[in-house]
Design a protein around this nucleic acid. Structure first.
Length: 837
DNA sequence: AACAATGTGTCATAG
DNA sequence: ACACATTGTT
């Protein structure tokens, strides 16, 4: 059992709170995970069944971490009990409680619920879960089918709108169309929903949306959910969105034992529908909630905390809290303004090398944090060149690699050959002469006949039933593929998951395809081997859990539907787990220097942290193009500020902040970058390094001499910091400057391109470009020209948060919506040859 | 004509 | 790494 003396009073209160709602406001590094693990252990000790505890986290990594920590706490607990001489007789001495079985991300929990509720949603029990790629393809096809131009409604935008709707709990028919644009989205959302149903598939949003909607509709299901768990514990509550909250309310409806942990200063997922107000106004729904504040920080030095606080406290709508630590003082935060992203990377890597050599740090002690994944490249190159090991967190995720998805698609086909997306993915991988044209024919036939693609393929492959759809040669190629799949499906009945996967690699010729000696192929082979290994591992774990299973309480209250049964790993179990397992194997924390985005960094901690790219437009990131209509500039920056806070508070001992004077962003142009406003918020006394007052002139032709810049760095400091720190920065500056000796590529950087033009061949005359800032929109009937669609008139204008869009009737007869920025407004005389439409 | 191989631009942030 | 366009091959 937890030792109370290792908890501070606030933590103690949170751990031992008994029944009823509980809100834990946990500042960064305040021992939040510790509180959750201890509380779980305490609940188990009090006799709450491991089957009736639900713990929700945001990432698989966090779930794995919790599982691990609870498990070791329970083991230690059992060991302690054995040692203690006086054993209370009523306490069962023999075994420590089982681990809670329901620890997972919202999506994992939702998927488990939906598997059992599938019939209510008209889905097969083994529905595939579509990832982002899959849903993007679906959106693309829908847009094509609707004969819309992708430039007007980019598939990504459609997907984002649908996803957002789902996060708000809206089904397609509830989606409100108020203008042309949202009407369009509504129509396509309706088709999207129908298409997914036809595919028998669910997307990420469905995993939460559908269980909630089913339960709210079906009283019997609602009752099941309400009594399924005795305690519900939620981590990162500030990042919960509406649907997730509705699910929580359903699950805690009866017990009312809902404990949530969160920090409003770390709310960074507003863009995917999270609503901090759920945390800020928790008492509104749960008036009797006990509130516990954790404000003592056990991670960072006071200097780091003060600097981070200075950044985030600029926000207004927040619980004011001030973290304190017993480790007073600490080294100042080092700020460095570098010439460009290259020298930024060189500074970071140089510093790591030096601190490693001189201060005994290991590569694992360092984290490099940036705003966007694209920034990782420079660091990767530079670390590579320096011979430092590193691992990239996030980015392209393991299970999204092509080779992994290919093999998983074969496995999906073994489970269900009607899985159209899986079928289309692998029909020609490895190449078997079944290209686009052939697949299109088959798809066409499938659409006409209403048969599944697999059925059509089976028919077309046979000379008797082919109906002349394909040439004899193609039919033969196809028949070979059909036989392959049929054989694999037979084998699937007999083999374990890992053995089946190995067979897939073999029989499909996939291994053979990767047998060239190229480093890419070798990496792919390694990835596949890693996957086979993880399969075997899961099989072993499932068996072990089965063996160790304690007396299984029989399903009570008719809730067999939601009961989890332990069994050997089945193909379907594996596929559904893997669809949600987007982060790298969580157990083995990557080796070497850790590279990650600020979002990924949440919840982690490191000795030394570099927060990089602190530049206006990058961090805070301001989306290029037209500012959105509703959000004020500030609204968007508020979350960025919290993101910066999250990044800074990852550091335990030393924090570095860097900012480049120029970098290539989005396009081919090298842009001058201003220093981030977040830096200006930090009191000078906490900082050493480059002056922040640095006026943001792009490097002039005769760029300032090295010595001059160096001198400025020194003279601008408000207060002399510790001498060794000065030496440190000097040494680093010297290293950096020797690199930046090279001349800038061109005398003047290109002017900032505010248009964010989307690859049109000829850019419209800037003077005639539409100004659209919400007030000045072109009137209806306005003649316009589009680079590729020709002349037309505006029929309607619609905004939306993202893109101002005009519905245009073109002279060609085509009517479609076009991003306003791609239109040129014509003067009356220019439009004379445009007839009335 | 249908496929395969090769080159090019693009990308917030996550499950 | 992926989609797209282009060129090369059967």
């Amino acid at each position: 059992m937890p030792k109370p003396e290792s908890l501070n009073p606030a933590q103690w209160e949170a751990v031992y709170h008994h029944e009823g709602p509980l809100l834990i406001l946990a500042g960064a590094g305040s021992g939040k995970t510790r509180v959750i693990t201890y509380r779980l252990a305490e609940l188990l000790r009090r006799g709450v069944s491991s089957q009736r505890l639900l713990v929700v986290t945001f990432t698989n990594k966090a779930a794995a971490e919790l599982r691990h920590r609870v498990s070791s706490l329970l083991q230690q607990d059992a060991a302690d009990r054995e040692l203690s001489p006086e054993q209370s007789p009523e306490q069962s001495p023999e075994q420590s409680p089982e681990l809670p079985r329901w620890i997972g991300t919202f999506h994992a929990i939702g998927a488990r619920l939906l598997r059992r509720l599938a019939s209510y949603a008209g889905l097969p029990q083994s529905f595939p879960i579509l990832d982002e790629d899959d849903t993007l393809k679906v959106c693309k096809e829908l847009i094509a089918e609707a004969q819309l131009d992708e430039r007007l409604l980019p598939p990504r935008a459609l997907r984002a709108h649908i996803d957002r709707a789902k996060n708000q709990g809206l089904l397609a028919e509830e989606y409100q169309g108020s203008d042309y644009f949202s009407d369009l989205v509504r129509k396509l959302y309706l088709r999207y929903e129908a298409r997914l149903k036809q595919l028998g598939a669910a997307d990420f949003g469905d995993l939460l949306l559908l269980p909630v909607r089913i339960a709210e509709r079906e009283p019997s299901v609602r009752a099941l959910l309400a009594c399924r768990f005795d305690h519900v514990l939620v981590d990162e509550f500030q990042d919960v969105n509406t649907v997730q909250y509705r699910l929580l309310k359903l699950l805690a409806e009866k017990s009312r034992n809902l404990a949530v942990v969160g920090d409003d200063d770390q709310a960074i997922y507003g863009w995917r529908g999270a609503d901090v107000r759920l945390l800020l106004h928790f008492q509104h729904d749960w008036p009797d909630a006990r509130i516990v504040k954790l404000e003592e920080n056990y991670r960072s030095s006071q200097v780091i905390l003060d600097a981070a606080h200075a950044v985030v406290s600029r926000n207004e709508d927040r619980h004011e809290k001030r973290l304190y630590t017993q480790r007073d003082g600490g080294d100042p935060v080092v700020f460095l303004r570098t010439r460009d992203d290259r020298s930024e990377a060189q500074f970071v890597v140089g510093t790591i090398l030096r601190m490693q050599a001189e201060e005994g740090y290991f590569p694992e002690d360092f984290a490099v944090i940036y705003r966007t994944n694209a920034q990782s490249l420079r660091f990767e190159e530079t670390l590579q060149a320096a011979g430092l090991p590193f691992s990239l967190l996030g980015g392209t995720r393991f299970f999204e690699r092509a080779e992994i998805k290919d093999v998983l698609s074969y496995l999906r086909l073994c489970q269900n050959p009607d899985d159209e997306l899986a079928l289309r993915r692998v029909i020609n991988v490895p190449a078997r002469q079944l290209g686009q044209a052939t697949v299109d024919k088959l798809l066409q036939r499938s659409k006409e006949s209403g048969q599944s693609l697999w059925q059509v393929i089976q028919a077309a492959a046979s000379p008797t039933t082919g109906g002349g759809l394909l040439s004899a040669k193609k039919a033969k190629d196809l028949a070979r593929f059909v036989t392959l799949i049929e054989q694999l499906r037979e084998r699937a009945e007999q083999l374990s998951v890992s053995a089946l996967a190995a067979e897939v690699l073999d029989r499909t010729g996939y291994r053979l395809m990767l047998s060239t000696a190229s480093p890419e192929d070798e990496a792919r082979q390694q990835n596949l081997d890693a996957m086979l290994g993880s399969m075997a591992e899961e099989e072993r774990a499932a068996l072990e859990a089965l063996e160790q299973q304690q007396s299984q309480p029989p399903p009570d209250e008719g809730s067999a539907l939601l009961w989890e049964e332990l069994r050997p790993l089945q193909l379907g179990d594996y596929l559904s787990r893997v669809a949600l397992q987007t982060d790298e194997e969580s157990g083995q924390r990557g080796r070497g220097v850790q590279l990650m985005t600020a979002h990924v960094a949440k919840g982690l901690e490191f000795q030394v942290v570099f927060v990089t790219g602190l530049e206006e437009g990058l961090f805070p990131s301001v989306r290029s193009g037209v500012p959105s209509l509703r959000d004020s500039e500030d609204d968007r920056v508020v979350e960025e500020r919290r993101l910066c806070y999250v990044a800074m508070t990852r550091a335990k001992v030393q924090l570095f902040l860097t900012s480049a004077r120029q970098r290539r962003l989005w396009g081919p142009d090298i842009r001058p970058m201003e220093v981030s406003r977040f830096l200006r918020a930090i009191p000078r006394r906490l900082l050493i390094g480059s002056p922040i007052e640095d006026t943001e002139l792009p490097p002039e032709a005769g760029s300032p001499g090295i010595s001059e810049r160096h001198r400025r760095d020194e003279s601008d400091r408000a207060e002399p910091p510790k001498r060794d720190q000065v030496a440190l920065v000097r040494a680093q500056l010297a290293g950096r400057i020797s690199d930046s000796d090279r001349k800038p590529q061109s005398g003047e950087p290109d002017p900032v391109d505010h248009a964010g033009g989307a690859g049109l061949a000829s850019a419209p005359d800037p003077e005639l470009r539409v100004e659209y800032d919400g007030d000045v929109a072109p009137p209806r009937g306005q003649p316009v020209r589009h680079a590729s669609l020709g002349l037309g008139r505006i029929v309607a204008i619609s905004g939306g948060d993202h893109k101002p869009v005009a519905q245009v009737q073109f002279q060609s007869g085509r009517q479609c919506a076009v991003d306003l920025r791609h239109l040129t407004v014509l003067r009356r005389d220019e439009a004379s040859d445009l007839e009335d439409l």
